[in-house]
Amino acid sequence: MLFAWRAIDQAKDAKSTALGRQPTSDLSPATPGAGANTLIPSELPSGAGDVSRSPGEVPVLTEQTVYEPKYEKQPLVLKAACERPMYADLDEPRVKNDKAQADIELIVNCDTDLLNFGLMEKVEGSEEARPNMTPKECADKIRSALVGREAPIPVRKGSALCITTNYDAARASGDQWRMILMHVVGVANDGATTVEVSAWNIPD
């Protein structure tokens, strides 16, 4: 009988040891619908909730956009006459007598001789700019204070413009889309307008 009682005690000890070593997850009630491959939010792949952009769609400029300097404070002199605008390609930058690949034009009002800038097709900008603004500040101004389509922009010494170039034209030519900051540094009596232009590449 002594041996029998010891055998029973050893069996109880073995059972207790086995239960003590069993993983806690095995002792917990199963969660209905839970599977072995279920991921918690922190384990989801990065960017899983991102919305992809359609091919050819203009990128949205955000606080995370990284701009690459292209050139800084390059001088240009534009001089127009009545019914003869002067154009500028701000990607290079370069003054032109024709509108091909131009981003902006200088126009003279034939009745008043007043000077205005005009933005070319699919070029957007804001007059709410200051010299030495960052490209991110320019992007915010273009978002919140956009120049209306075909609206004239008065030329004034000391004024500045933030401009994004034509995205479709840049893609078609294999070039990069750009953010431009243009500062009017002088307006002569004959209407010759001197500007300083800085540019940054915008990632696609």
Rank of each mutant, 00 (worst) to 15 (best):
F117R: 08
K141W: 05
L27Q: 05
G47Q: 04
Q10P: 00
P75I: 01
V58C: 15
Q64V: 08
A145M: 01
W200A: 13
L76R: 05
L19T: 12
E57C: 09
N189F: 15
D140Y: 04
S42Y: 03
C162R: 09
L90G: 04
A169T: 04
E124H: 09
G118H: 03
A129I: 06
C82A: 15
D111E: 15
C162F: 11
N201W: 12
V108N: 12
N166D: 14
D204M: 08
L19Q: 15
L146W: 03
A172H: 09
P69K: 08
A88S: 04
W200R: 11
G174A: 13
E92W: 13
E196G: 00
A192Q: 11
N201R: 14
D9E: 10
L27A: 04
V195M: 05
A4V: 11
Q74G: 00
A80P: 07
T24K: 08
M120P: 01
T165I: 05
P32H: 04
W177M: 15
E121L: 01
E83L: 12
D98W: 01
L181A: 04
K141R: 04
R178H: 09
D204H: 02
V147Q: 02
S198H: 03
S173N: 13
V77D: 06
L76N: 02
N201E: 12
Q22H: 01
E83C: 03
S16P: 05
